[in-house]
Design a protein around this nucleic acid. Structure first.
Length: 655
DNA sequence: GGGCTGTACTG
DNA sequence: CAGTAC
DNA sequence: GCCC
């Protein structure tokens, strides 16, 4: 709880809870607790400049927590309170102005005890966390429609220009009137100013932007006004409605077009009401987890492709760098590129660039240089030739940055140098194979070929044991048209007491095994004999393990190229986690793990774990392994993490 | 100022 | 343990 | 290099 600084001890100070007690609180308990702290003046509001832009709002926060509120939930609740919101511990739509959640509609309904997802009221804005973060950045409120969790159709309705506005759904109006009544009461009970409630009653009548205007206008927090003045804005700008204004709204056309496309993720150069730099390029989705944002499936050409190409060169350069920083820069630039890729308009100013998630001041500067001059001067002075050589070397399976640099330093320049063992180069077995089939391995294969190879393999596996689950993962499962390799997952239900390793699970003495060959060992033997598998790269050492990883090369027929293939066997229990992991993509996986981490969980290919205690001085080191809370299906993992369900083809975050 | 996904195999 | 792969 |  060190996030909330204590004020000088007041007379009636709520009992200070121990860290442990706080950590054990359920979300509702924590919300109530922090509410008491706030009421006692023990929550320090944010310093002037940002302003308590959530003042008067009554927010219910729902996350995927199981049991105790996770560190992330507590963090976010702290945050909401610090910016002036009143946290409502339980879901009581009549007493709320906003809901902030990471859950999808069905999860939210379940969590809040609603009978059906249809009962989630449309009149109440249900928003993603990014709405809060974007609002903070913009120095005011962000537009709902860009951050609605799932009732975006209604929220979107609200920003449709007057002339084109459709009838607000019946359910909406009902929900509103009933909530208005109860709100005044709630305000009394909590002894809070009712400004927020008065606003909330207008939610469906006014546009989001008007509401934002009202928030600033009717509740003139000195800090907000000061912040605006500091930025040199005319004070009227805060109250100027746009987006929801009359027919003169310059954005009307834009909205109409967007609606026509049923676009839910609007990104434009639409200024928010403040005209503040951070807001100038529309919503900045920082603070959100990539995995929470379901992509809209549209690709389209990117108006900033030149910027992306140039930044990609920078990624290449740093990928060859030796330091840890280089590695993190690769990640940072990659995230920035991802943000830029989603942008649908040409970047025109460094402010716009800065507003992109993952783009900071340094990258924004570089972006502007690219836009103004067409390239980065910094790249002119970089040893492109050496970089190219390092990349070539790393194209060899088993060769990474270290070895590549070593070879370069030793004087090697070409693959032939390596082949000939010049300058004392020695190859491991895997590297030798990797070099031998260099071109094949680095070529991508058409999806059809992956499918064909899989169809050679699956029947063989099933002939060994018809109860096996054999599935192809990776980019193939994500529906990509071309694949870099083939990932095959093997598992087997244990309901008959057997698993993919054979009978050993129930045979205490291994020497008495009657079926000594595990499935994978037999399968690989078969595939070798049939010429499907041609080379091994990485062979498990203990074939009797439940979890095995095999890496090798295979081909469709004697005329086909050699393709990379991986086999994984996993215990039936952890098939969901394995499926999730081996389906990817990379960025999606990282994001899921990061979110799990922030929620106090840990996610790996075996499952989602709670109560993992990490070494505070080295977070990667775990003191205990925790309690497994989900692993059998992908869905339960999504659910526990409060991530909206996404089919494999939707889990694409990278290129 | 610290974190940035997390695990397994190879030599 | 460092390096590599996924 | 970005973000908290």
């Amino acid at each position: 709880m060190e996030r909330l600084r204590s004020a000088p001890p007041p007379v009636k100070r709520p009992a200070k809870k121990s860290k442990k007690a706080v950590a054990a609180m359920r979300p509702a308990e924590y919300a109530a607790y922090i509410g008491r702290l706030a009421a006692a003046g023990m929550v320090r509001r944010r310093p002037l400049g940002r302003g308590p832009f959530l003042a008067g709002f009554r927010i219910f926060y729902a996350d995927g927590d199981v049991g105790a509120a996770s560190p992330m939930t507590r963090d976010r609740m702290d945050y909401l309170v610090r910016y002036g919101a009143t946290l409502v511990p339980t879901y009581d739509p009549a007493h709320l102005t906003h809901v902030v959640t990471t859950l999808d509609r069905a999860q939210f309904a379940r969590k809040t005890g609603l009978e059906s997802p249809r009962d989630v009221p449309d009149a109440l804005p249900v928003l993603r966390w990014e709405w809060v973060k974007t609002g903070e950045r913009a120095g005011g409120l962000a537009r709902w429609h860009e951050h609605a969790a799932y009732n975006d159709h209604v929220v979107f309705e609200a920003v449709v220009p007057e002339g084109e506005r459709r009838t607000v759904p019946e359910a909406c109006r009902r929900g509103r009137s009933s909530s208005v009544q109860a709100k005044g009461k709630a305000a009394d009970v909590e002894g809070r100013p009712d400004a927020g409630d008065a606003e909330a009653s207008r939610i469906s009548e006014f546009t989001q932007d008007r509401l934002a205007g009202l928030a600033a206008e009717q509740k003139p927090h000195a800090s907000v006004q000061k912040a605006q003045r500091t930025r040199g804005e005319p004070s009227t700008s805060a109250a100027t409605p746009h987006g929801g204004g009359g027919a003169a709204d310059p954005l009307a056309e834009f909205y109409a077009a967007a609606r026509a496309e049923r676009e839910t993720e609007l990104r434009s150069d639409t200024p928010l009401r403040t005209g503040h730099a951070a807001a100038a390029a529309g919503s900045r989705q920082t603070g959100a987890f990539q995995c929470d944002i379901v992509p809209d499936g549209k690709v389209g050409t990117c108006p900033n492709q030149d910027v992306i190409d140039e930044l990609n060169k920078l990624v290449k350069v740093h990928r060859q760098g030796a330091t840890r920083e280089d590695g993190f820069k690769v990640g940072a630039y990659t995230r920035a590129i991802n943000g830029i890729r989603k942008l649908k308009t040409r970047i025109k100013s460094s402010e716009e660039a800065l507003a992109i998630a993952g783009v900071g001041s340094k990258t924004a500067q570089k972006i502007m240089e690219i836009i103004e001059t067409g390239h980065l001067r910094r790249l002119d002075h970089v040893l492109t030739k050496e970089i190219a050589i390092l990349e070539t070397f790393q194209g060899i399976y088993g060769v990474g940055p270290k070895v590549a640099r070593q070879w370069l330093a030793a004087g090697c320049r070409t693959l032939d140098d390596i082949r000939e063992g010049k300058h004392g180069v020695k190859l491991s077995t895997a590297q030798h194979t990797g070099l031998k089939y260099y071109d094949d391995i680095n070529a991508r294969m058409p999806r059809e070929e992956a499918q064909a190879i899989f169809e050679l393999i699956k029947p063989v596996a099933l002939s060994i044991d018809p109860k096996l689950f054999v599935d192809i993962m990776g980019s193939f499962r994500r529906g990509k048209a071309d694949c870099g390799d083939i990932d095959i997952l093997i598992t087997r239900p244990t309901d008959d007491g057997k698993s993919h390793i054979g009978r050993r699970l129930h045979c205490k003495d291994p020497r008495k095994l009657t079926t000594p060959l595990g499935v994978l060992r037999r399968l690989l033997k078969e595939l070798h004999e049939r010429g499907v598998i041609t080379e091994d790269l990485n062979v498990p050492e203990d074939w009797d393990d439940l979890e095995l990883v095999y890496r090798g090369l295979c081909r469709r027929d004697s005329k086909g190229l050699q393709r990379r293939i991986d086999f994984l066997t996993v215990p039936y229990k952890s098939r969901g986690a394995a499926l999730l992991y081996y389906t990817g993509d990379d960025i999606f996986n990282r994001s899921m793990r990061l979110k799990a981490n922030k929620m106090g969980y840990s996610l790996n290919q075996r499952g989602l774990y709670a109560n993992v205690i990490r070494n505070p001085s080295d977070r990667r080191q775990k003191f205990n392994e925790g309690v497994i809370i989900a692993s059998e299906t992908e869905r339960e993992i999504f659910e526990k993490l409060g991530v909206p369900w996404q089919e494999p083809h939707q889990r694409v975050r990278g290129g």
